[in-house]
Structures are given as structure tokens and as C-alpha cells.
Design a protein around this nucleic acid. Structure first.
Lengths: 349, 349
DNA sequence: GGTTGGCACTCGCGTAGACTGAGTGCCAAC
DNA sequence: GTTGGCACTCAGTCTACGCGAGTGCCAACC
């Protein structure tokens, strides 16, 4: 029986037998739909598992004891705990978008065009609208492209601006302050040296270039390499966040909302959150699994996207813990795939 | 009596005598503080205008008839109408920040440094924190600086990237698609021509440069000029919005909040809102004066900032209609002044 | 032994009524 | 014109109460 190929043999928590799993699933599904505690009768009438409410009740007490469900109070139905959601998500198969959503995605990508940054921005917008949640797209702009040109433009006597153009069309920039006035010729030679030395390298690998022998030029080159390293660290991740307004309808407590929106305003925190979740090998982070207190009532669904087979960034969706995981997982997967394809094509042309 | 220099002769609505004005002022002030309807007793005990509650009551009925106040229901106190707020704001003298706030502003500007964009961003953040509202800073990056360099960098055979560096350190960029493959030499000559022709001009005035005679180069130059015009139109206004999370505590109705946050996500709408308000010569737009339905319960306080005497952008604050106008007006004025000073100094050095 | 129907019990929620008190409008007196 | 007095209004609060959804337990059943 264990080897029966028809039995659902998933990597999920094996401590739950099939019926408990089915009941838990039904509770989670119903709760996601209605946001109301789910009673035993509700479970019976929803799924066709051929048992009476009484049986469901006794199973539910077990599920509660094991930490998958809670009761807001006696004489109310059950609500999934974080562990309950985790089980539910783990046993989900690959989902599908409904027709309208598929059309929306297809329509978006068939008309998509323009520069990388604008593409990422509009993708974020679309994803937010598609899922009615907050969408986050992180572009690893400094890691997914190579240097095309490096320029140094004098702004004032002692200040110049470093401008690095990448093959993706991304521009990194940073101002460099010098103690002494700088000559335009010196800037030009330094820029030529940098372009020659860094061309077709990743900006994150821009550590050294050949020296010129002229100490002034070499010193500026050193400053520029330093500036590149700083810029990569600071703005190497381009973050787009859209649909934060959708949070307003997900939570009724103003304080929760304030905390969540406040977190979203710290873009650095969002980037490291997503990195962290991906590093732990997760696709979904539920509640406290995000590791951030303000998100204890939120879940995050993430997926990397690739350009020519290589990770070029991450897309993600942040919503309430009781979000529609099937739909959101499908949406994130589809969008990341199509975005990967589109950007890879773009690169090739 | 009319010419008595001690009597408050303000440009406010003259249809209100001094006592009515004082009562209205007291009601607005109290309502801003408490968010509760204000009764006649409350008015008497607050301001020292030496009349009894009964007198205040009869005055308040007049103020209500004239549209400055409303009652949420009989047997409740009065609430200012939009017109009431308007009167209140019009008769406000120049306000002052309290000591703690002044310290905060001074501390920020004494440590402020870095590039223009980063400066504007952190200023927005500071303003949001200072006023506990949503702060908006619009930088007219394309109008407030002149061209320092124009470059064309080949990205792929048929695509190149236009990169314009401005004296402020701002970088404008846009990709240009060509029907035929382009040679690096051609790009270089076109870029040289553009730099020579546009240097020290404003990007918004970049309409033409001298021709080279080479039709290919000239055609690319034409494309580049076109691209500059588009970029100026599209990203000539750099928008920073911070403190949107503060809106969560200003409104309790989720739908209002959703509408306001949704509007804030459309940055274009915010820019044209602010432009529009300034064009009408206003410093404060109250409720429907903003011209945007989602902001009917909000007020906007704006002030331009200048670099070397010339308008370089706008700072603004968006909050609930019942915000603390005195404080906010003072904060916006102080921040715009100090920002102007800082940026002008920076330019000079 | 697992399953089931029956049943008593719990408890949130909605409704109804009473009460409170803040605040008004009116009026007669000052 | 101003004031104190007074009747009136009405939102908010509290309490009581019944309803009903839902539970836990148990004895009976297959």
C-alpha cells in the first residue's frame, strides 16, 4: 500500500493520515474563502469524504491538539494555525490560473516592451493587480549584466560623477569627491582605463584594472573602483513595490496595517527578507517564518526569475496569511516564467 | 476702528466678525486636537473670549448657517467644514516649530550630505517623520540643471543607450532602437556632436545641434534629441513619497485608506496634483480643493524649493483634513528653506 | 474499534430597552 | 446684546436576553 503509486505520496508532514489531511485542507480552504471560523458541518458539506460531522469533530480536536488548528473561542469553528497553513501549502500541487487571469498575463506579456527597469516596474504592477496583493520585484541589476562602458564626468572642480553602463541598459552612478581639482584629460584617461579593464566583466567583480603609471590617474581609478563597489552594494538591487494599497483591505486593525506598510517603506528590509527566504530554500514563508515581527499576519510567496538560465532577480507577493495560496503560487510561477522568457529573448535579439 | 493698527487686519474672509472668527478658530483647533465634535462649553473654557456658552451657541448656529461648521447630529458639538478649515488656514500667521522639531530639522541638515537624489529621498523621509504624515518631494531634475555630457553606448547590434549627465549629478537615460546595425565610431561622433551642442544647456531646451554632414550620424543625433525630449517628459520629475504608512492611523475607514494609498501609487497623478495646486497659487489645498476624489478627506501643504534662486522642485505633505496646519505649514516652510539653502551651497562649492 | 446520532452545554452576536450625559435651541430676564 | 435656566434630543453605553452555530461527550450501532 505504501508503494501504491496512486496514493498521494507527497513530501508533506507524514504524521497526518489521509482523512485528517483532507479535513485540514477543507478547513484551510473554507477559511481562506470566508475568513470565518469553519465548523464541522461546513467541512462535511464541502468535501465529499463520506463521514458525519461528529467524526469530523473528533478529528478536529486531534488536529487542534497537534497544533494545526485553533478555536477563537469555544463554540466557534476552527481556524488554521501557522502550522496548518504550512501543511496545506506543502501538500499543494502545481496550481493553475483561471481563464481571465491567464488572459490578463498573456495580454500583458504580448504588449510588454521597453527597458529593463520599466519592464520590471510594470510587471510588478501587473502582478499586484493580478493577485490583489502587494507585489515585489527585485532586480539583481549588478549581478545579471556586464559592463559596457565606464565614464567619468566632471561636475565641479573637485567632484566628478562615475557612470557605469551595463549590457542590460542599467546605469550605475556615484559621485566622487577629490581633495584637489581634477583635469578633464585625467578623467578621460582614467575612464578609458576603466572601460578597457572592466568591459564585459560583472560590476560586482570589478576589483582591479591595469595601471597607467600616472599616479594621479591611478588614484582616480582606485577611487572609481571603490565607488563601483559601493554602488553595487547600495543600488545593486533594484526594488519595485506595488499594490501596497491592497493591504488596506487585507487587515482591519490599523496598527497591523501601519506596521506592514512601515516595513514596506524600508526597501532594504524587503530585499533582505526575500533573499533570506530564498536562501532557506522556501517558496512560501508563512507568518513568523518571514522572521519579521510586523509580518506575523502575512505570507510571502517568492520565485526567482532567470535571464538566459541565470538568476537575475526575484518576484514576490506579500499578502495576508489567509491568502489564496493556490492562485498566488500559480500567479507567481507563471509571471516569473514568462518574465524570464521575455527577458532572455530580449537579450538575444 | 477699521484703521486701528492693533486690530487683526488679515486677508481672510471679511464676512466674519472677530468674535465669530475666534470661535471658529477655537473649534478648528480643538477638533484638530481631539477629533471629537466641539461643544460650546469646550470653546469657552479653551479661549478667553469672555462670553458665556449660550452666546457661543448662538454664534455657532450662525457659523453653521454660513457653512463653516456642521453638526454630525443634533445634540453633538460642531465640526469644521472644508470652508471652516479654509478660513482657519487663511488667517493663520507664520507658525513656529517646537524645540524638539527644530532640533530634529537642524540635526538632519547639519549631517546631510551626498548626492542630490539621495538628499531628496532622505529629506522626504525626515519630513514624513517630522510631521507624522505622508511627505512628497518632487525634484524638477530636468529643469534645474544643465547638460554636462552626452554619451551613446552600444548595447547590442541595433540598440544603444543614450546617457545624459547633468550638472546636478542626475543621469537621464533611454535606449534607442535602430533599424540597422550601428557602428561604435558612428555612436562616438554622434555623442561628441551632442555633447558639444548641448553642453551647459538645459535638457528641456535640447532641441537641435549642429549637423555633421554624415547622414547616418545626423540621423542618430536626431533620434537622440528625440529620446532626450521623451526622457525629460517621462522622468524629468523625480518623485519621492515616504510615510504612506502614516495614513493608516489617520483614517479608520479601510475604503478611504485604500483610495488614498492607491492614488499615492500613481506617482504621475501626485506630480500633476502638486503642480496644479501650485499653479493655482495655493499653499494649502483642503479636501476637494485638491481636485481628486480620493483625497476628499485629505489636505495637501506644498512649498517650492529653490536652488540659487530658481525653482528646483516642490516639497509637500499630505495628511488628513484635520491635520495640524500650523505645525505642518511651519515644517514645510522650514524644510523647504533649509533644503534650498543646502542645495544652493552645494552647487556653489 | 471506529463511527454515528443525540444531547447538553458554551458563548459570541444581534436585538431591545433603559439610562446617561453631552450638547443643543429657545426663552425670559438682565 | 448677553446670559442663565430649562426642556429636549440623541449617540453611546450597559444590561438582559434569546438565538444559533458549534462544540464535547456518550451511548448505541455496525
Amino acid at each position: 500500500m505504501v508503494d501504491d503509486p496512486t496514493s498521494p505520496d507527497r513530501p508533506a508532514d507524514r504524521s497526518l493520515d489521509d482523512r485528517k489531511a483532507a479535513i485540514l485542507r477543507a478547513v484551510v480552504k473554507a477559511y481562506i474563502e470566508t475568513a470565518q471560523p469553519v465548523g464541522s458541518a461546513n467541512v462535511v458539506e464541502g468535501g465529499a469524504l463520506g463521514v458525519s460531522p461528529a467524526t469530523v469533530r473528533s478529528e478536529m480536536t486531534v488536529l487542534e491538539r497537534e497544533g494545526y488548528l485553533t478555536q477563537p473561542h469555544t463554540s466557534a469553528g476552527r481556524i488554521p494555525t501557522q502550522r496548518g497553513y504550512r501543511f496545506f501549502v506543502d501538500q499543494l500541487g502545481p496550481g493553475e490560473l483561471d481563464a481571465a487571469q491567464r488572459r490578463q498575463v498573456r495580454g500583458f506579456f504580448s504588449h510588454a516592451h521597453g527597458e529593463l527597469e520599466e519592464m520590471l516596474r510594470s510587471t510588478t504592477r501587473m502582478l499586484a493587480r493580478l493577485t490583489s496583493t502587494t507585489a515585489v520585484v527585485v532586480g539583481d541589476v549588478a549581478d545579471a549584466a556586464v559592463v559596457r562602458s565606464v565614464q567619468l564626468v566632471g561636475l565641479s572642480a573637485r567632484t566628478c560623477l562615475l557612470v557605469v553602463v551595463l549590457s542590460s541598459g542599467t546605469v550605475l552612478k556615484r559621485s566622487i569627491e577629490r581633495a584637489d581639482p581634477i583635469d578633464d584629460d585625467v578623467l578621460a584617461s582614467a575612464a578609458a582605463l576603466l572601460t578597457a579593464g572592466l568591459r564585459d566583466k560583472r560590476p560586482s567583480k570589478a576589483l582591479a584594472v591595469g595601471l597607467s603609471g600616472d599616479p594621479l590617474v591611478d588614484s582616480i581609478v582606485a577611487d572609481a573602483l571603490d565607488a563601483i563597489a559601493h554602488t553595487v552594494a547600495e543600488s545593486g538591487h533594484l526594488v519595485h513595490i506595488e499594490g501596497a494599497s491592497n493591504m488596506a483591505e487585507a487587515f482591519d486593525a490599523a496598527s497591523t496595517l501601519h506596521a506592514v506598510l512601515g516595513l514596506l517603506e524600508q526597501q532594504m528590509a524587503v530585499v533582505s527578507l526575500i533573499e533570506d527566504v530564498l536562501d532557506r530554500g522556501l517558496t512560501v514563508a508563512i507568518g513568523s517564518e518571514t522572521g519579521l515581527a510586523p509580518l506575523s499576519e502575512c505570507s510571502l510567496v517568492v520565485a526567482p526569475y532567470r535571464v538566459d538560465g541565470e538568476r537575475a532577480g526575484t518576484i514576490g507577493v506579500l499578502g495576508p496569511t489567509r491568502m489564496n495560496y493556490e492562485e498566488t503560487l500559480a500567479a507567481v510561477a507563471v509571471v516569473s516564467n514568462r518574465l524570464s522568457r521575455l527577458l532572455s529573448e530580449g537579450e538575444r535579439s
